[in-house]
Simulated scan of single mutants.
Amino acid sequence: MTTKLTFRILIAALFCAAMTGGGTGVARAQSVAVMVNGEPITTFDIEQRSRLDKLSHQSRTRQQILDELIDEKVKIREGKKYGVSPSDSDIDSSFASMSSRMRMSQDQMTKMLAAQGIRPETLKSKIKADMVWTSLVRGRFKDSLLVGEKEIQAQLAATGGGDKGSTESFEYQMRPIVLIVSRSSDGGAMEARRKEAESLRSRVQSCEDADRIFKALPNTAIRGMVVKTSADLPPALREVLDKTPVGQLTAPEATRQGIEMVALCGRKPTTADTPKKREIRDKMFAEKFMAKSKDYLREVRNAAMIEYRGVDAGRSGR
């Protein structure tokens, strides 16, 4: 399973490294450390992964890094057996998403890696293995990974989560509204639009009112309908929406685009997960996934042909 937290730490570390201009050239000398099902893992591969470790502030032994590389080899091979093989465009897309979260292009991310002596293929190979394994485990064991309603209710009861917020869920129908303020404008422009928004709130008693009023205003946008459940929204926004009468607007807030409000067009009970149930479901799914992943990986690794070379000769698998 992709370790999102590790990637976030890695991205932050990359940013810091780029700012300090650190890094050394990529070493070229390499020798085979391990053969996995006829495929080599070289000392260069180990060194590259070690550099990634340093960027993400991980502290692992050489053998732990080597074990991870072996695991990735057997994951990729197992994926091929079942026809699970992400395309280059899939991997590039994931790499691009990481770059985007850093507000940079793929080329900029590549240069940041290069500054630390790391090839982009090093990170992409890890991305590929994680994508393959996640698809494999989810696909092959999807029935056993399902979290049933009885399991959730039992967990709620065990944790005393029977309060109203844990047992009720709502569906919210909303139309976001933006009174646009140019980024080049001074603080006075933002305050003027805030006062304008406040004066308009009292005139809106339905979403039809909101549509009519804000479509007629210059430099103003009213978005299409957005439907979310309680579990989809952060607690602060849920609290605001629960206190807002249907048909009216939330209080104006300053954002990067200008002054924003939300017209609450509908709020009704739903059988969808409550935030607490969603939290329990996600946690139980993750626990099942990790357990199944661990057993499955042990199985495919035990069946793999792993031959240690050189200084690694004589070692055994985990």
Rank of each mutant, 00 (worst) to 15 (best):
V132S: 02
Q48Y: 07
E208N: 01
E260S: 15
I280W: 04
G162C: 09
R267G: 06
C16N: 09
A286P: 00
G79T: 12
G83C: 00
L146D: 05
A236E: 15
F95R: 08
M290V: 13
E260C: 11
G310R: 04
Q30S: 12
G160C: 12
A313I: 08
E151R: 00
R175Y: 07
S89M: 07
S185H: 10
Q48S: 14
Q30H: 13
G25P: 05
Q173N: 08
P269F: 11
K4E: 15
M290W: 10
T220C: 12
G317Q: 03
A221C: 05
G247R: 02
K54S: 07
V181P: 02
T43D: 03
K283R: 15
R51N: 06
P235R: 10
S31H: 09
E196P: 01
R28T: 14
S185W: 01
K150V: 07
G165M: 14
V246W: 06
C16L: 06
A12I: 06
D71Y: 15
S85P: 01
R183E: 00
E299V: 04
D45V: 08
A216S: 13
S166T: 00
L179W: 01
P275F: 06
R193I: 00
E287Q: 15
V240Y: 03
A33G: 05
T134C: 07
A210L: 05
A13Q: 13
M190I: 08
A216T: 13
L145Q: 08
K292N: 05
V227R: 02
E191A: 08
